[in-house]
Design a protein around this nucleic acid. Structure first.
Length: 200
DNA sequence: GCCAACGTTGGC
DNA sequence: GCCAACGTTGGC
């Protein structure tokens, strides 16, 4: 089974209800049309509410989205992956985010609102970590001032877990395999504050 | 490449 | 609905 989890596809959705590319890898079960494009459109409502409930708070304004920046060989096939540089290189620096199969991750995708900010996280690579910022649509905003490695985040997470702090419940560690995850403002701000600090 | 964590599937 | 087998994620 060709896996293309968590990554964006080249080519932006942008404004219009572009219907065509229903190119999901494979529908799960009997799920019919799930378009995983994160795009504008105040359309769906109930699912949004559901997803909002999932993240515990009506509006989580910040997100972390994982994608694999390095291509890999999988079963003899070169599986193209998608890193932040690829996003940056897109027309309008915008891409659609497909390949997410986990239902919870998909609910989060649906709960997103255009314009909300998300970290672009590089996973399954030499150095996993946060590489940049984007806004839901999904458009490149900027690279982080420096790459923020998973290892560094983990150190903070451990410390905060022990004695309190913004990263104590960060989903990156508590929900290990979730490829699209919400961040609280506290988490988001703390991670951003690391940009200006020396790598630890 | 290894393998732990954990999500999904399907028999019962 | 339980749970064992299986598949995937993703750090190391």
């Amino acid at each position: 089974m060709p896996r293309r989890a968590k990554r964006a596809c080249r080519n932006a959705p942008e404004p219009d209800p572009e219907m065509p590319s229903g190119k999901r890898t494979k529908a799960m079960k009997t799920e019919t049309s799930d378009k995983l494009v994160v795009e504008g459109g105040p359309s769906d409502s109930t699912k949004k509410a559901q997803a909002a409930k999932d993240c515990g708070n009506e509006s989580s304004r910040y997100w972390l989205m994982k994608s694999e920046p390095e291509s890999r060989m999988e079963k003899g096939v070169d599986v193209k992956q998608f890193g932040i540089e690829d996003l940056k290189a897109q027309p309008k620096q915008t891409a659609c985010w497909d390949g997410v199969r986990n239902y919870q991750a998909r609910n989060f995708l649906r709960a997103m609102k255009v314009g909300e900010e998300a970290f672009f996280y590089h996973s399954n690579c030499k150095e996993p970590g946060i590489a940049g910022l984007m806004k839901v649509d999904v458009q490149f905003i900027r690279m982080t001032k420096r790459f923020i490695p998973l290892a560094e985040l983990k150190v903070h997470h451990q410390a905060h877990k022990a004695s309190g702090g913004p990263l104590e419940n960060m989903a990156l560690f508590t929900r290990q395999r979730l490829s699209v995850q919400p961040l609280t403002k506290g988490e988001f701000d703390f991670v951003l504050s690391l940009e200006d600090k020396k790598p630890s």
